[in-house]
């Protein structure tokens, strides 16, 4: 990456994929592995704390915990799943908390690494969701019935079905987990790369570059880094929300009566 002829001193090396392959902390254990375990502990402790003394008139912490649960329950599960939404609320709440904490790790000082920027983690999570909604659909309608719901467009002649059914099969059965995981991975990866670029670029301009203009401009790079940190916070919350909302919607479509 030293091809920039115009750059003075040693050329600036832009951050890349290599920056995501952190050396193992010990043995086979890497930072993302530790972060996953850490997030589970945080979430368990936080929810445990909010319900330690449940009361009819909730304390501040109980109110926070119940509000979080309420968001998932009322604006995700109930809207997306329909009549049977209640039994999926615990799963969706845990999923949302897990995504939210792991995404926000990307901007929390000293941690600063979004776990889902390693594609393996979102693949695993999307695989879990894929198993769940297919299992629910097959259990409810039988295999043939489930396939009919998800790949059989209604009221069209047979030769149109020959064209449309493969498209819907690919879209609903094969592509869903791919888009679900890649959307999350792409957003977390790109966001982290963007922050790396502004911060490392600013550092380079301030300390390594020998041009006085670059040194003067360095604070602006850091300022942009701060602006984009706030922007990332927004993206991280939105992506966690979208993942859970789509999961709920897939569960909902697997459980529809008939179409």
């Amino acid at each position: 990456m030293t091809t920039m002829a115009t750059a003075p001193a040693p050329g600036f090396e832009p951050p890349g994929v290599a920056d995501f392959n952190l050396p193992p902390v010990f043995g086979e254990i890497t930072k993302p592995v530790l972060l996953l375990v850490f997030s589970a502990i945080i979430i368990f402790a936080a929810f445990r704390f909010t319900v330690r003394k449940p009361a009819l008139v909730p304390s501040k912490s109980q109110f926070l915990g119940e509000s979080f649960h309420g968001i998932v329950r009322n604006s995700i599960a109930r809207d997306m799943i329909g009549a049977e939404y209640l039994k999926f609320v615990p799963f969706l709440t845990a999923l949302f908390a897990f995504l939210l904490v792991n995404n926000l790790f990307g901007i929390i000082p000293l941690i600063q690494f979004p776990t889902f920027s390693h594609p393996g983690v979102p693949y695993a999570l999307a695989g879990l969701v894929w198993l769940l909604y297919n299992y629910l659909g097959i259990k409810r309608h039988g295999f043939a019935g489930y396939m009919r719901i998800s790949t059989w467009p209604p009221d069209v002649p047979w030769w149109v079905r020959i064209i449309l059914t493969p498209i819907e099969f690919i879209s609903n059965i094969l592509l869903r987990p791919v888009t679900l995981s890649l959307r999350l991975f792409g957003n977390m990866f790109a966001g982290h790369l963007l922050l790396l670029l502004f911060i490392l670029g600013g550092q380079y301009m301030l300390f390594t570059a020998d041009s006085i203009t670059l040194k003067v401009m360095a604070p602006f790079a850091f300022a942009m880094g701060i602006v984009f940190t706030f922007f990332e916070a927004f993206v991280q919350v939105v992506q966690a929300y979208i993942f859970v909302m789509l999961t709920a919607s897939y569960i909902g479509t697997s459980l529809v009566d008939h179409h």
Binding site: G82, I170, L246
Partner: peptide
């Protein structure tokens, strides 16, 4: 009370993603 009821298709935000996924599938296939 659930807003949608069991038999209704999911509301717009997820429809948009499904439509995009259908479009991709058609091109790919």
């Amino acid at each position: 009370q659930p807003r949608g009821g069991g038999g209704q298709p999911p509301p717009p935000p997820s429809e948009a993603w499904t439509a995009l996924s259908h479009l991709l599938s058609g091109f790919l296939l």
